[in-house]
Amino acid sequence: METEITHRPSYAHLVVSLEVEETILAEPGAMVSHTPSVSIETSSSRDGLLSSAKSMLGGESLFTNEFTAEREPGTITLAPPKPGDIREYTLDDGTLYAVDGAFLAAEPPIDIDSEFGGLKSMLAGASITPLALTGSGRVFLEAFGGIETVSLDHGESYIIDNENVVAWEGSVDFDARRVGDLKSTLLSGEGLVMEFTGPGNVWYQTRGLDSFVDTIASALPTSDDNDATIEF
């Protein structure tokens, strides 16, 4: 399987060239185009009912699409639903954690499950249930904006706003909390943050989708604006 990421970083687009009987898994809605030799099959979570229920709690789809080149080699193109970059990561019998909406595609040897974030993050109000991508093979992550990498040494920590986190390696410990007390949270415009402690790598996106949506919403005319009359 050969892959190429084009139109980076603002409108990244993943091109996957499949040999006969090769397959790639992708999030529903990610497909842009494919050659006639590529078949599509939609399947539920590969770990059964429990995993499906956990995936639903995590905000991810219960299904993945499997694209397979059957009679001859073929090509499938994939893209995120929002403008931004795509990052390739190779797992070697390890685990990568990805937040809701960050998973785009993976090679079939990768096992996709959902992990509960733990009591601390639930108490912090984060309700974090990241996807656990485990095994050996390539994973493709999507982001809103560009993707930055933070490499942490053993015991070194780094704090990232909750809506900017994309993924982190299984060797990295994490916790979630609110920024200060309620007053400082409201005045600062910041809410939840995640603190990561190495060793390992963490990835974050340079834009936050919720903040972007709020900005667009605030610029739209209200019903009062629409009802206003113009006098000459």
Rank of each mutant, 00 (worst) to 15 (best):
R177M: 10
G200A: 05
W203M: 07
P199G: 06
R207F: 05
D175V: 11
D210K: 12
T215V: 04
W168F: 15
V202E: 02
E195V: 11
A176K: 09
N201A: 14
F174I: 09
R207H: 09
L209N: 00
M194Q: 11
R177T: 10
V172P: 01
E195D: 06
Y204T: 01
G180D: 03
L186M: 14
N201Q: 14
D181G: 12
S188L: 08
M194F: 11
S184Q: 13
R207M: 10
K183F: 08
P199M: 03
Q205C: 05
D175N: 14
F174P: 10
V213F: 07
S188P: 09
L187N: 12
V202S: 04
W168Y: 13
E190N: 14
R178L: 09
G208S: 15
P199T: 05
L187T: 14
L182G: 00
F196I: 00
V193Y: 07
D173S: 13
R177P: 02
V202Q: 02
W168P: 07
L192K: 06
D210R: 12
S188I: 11
N201W: 03
V213P: 00
K183M: 10
L187M: 14
R207V: 01
L182N: 03
M194P: 00
V213W: 03
T197C: 01
Q205V: 04
V213Q: 04
W168N: 06
T215F: 07
N201E: 13
L186V: 12
S171E: 13
G170P: 08
V179D: 00
R177V: 01
A176V: 14
W168V: 08
V172Y: 06
F212S: 13
S184I: 10
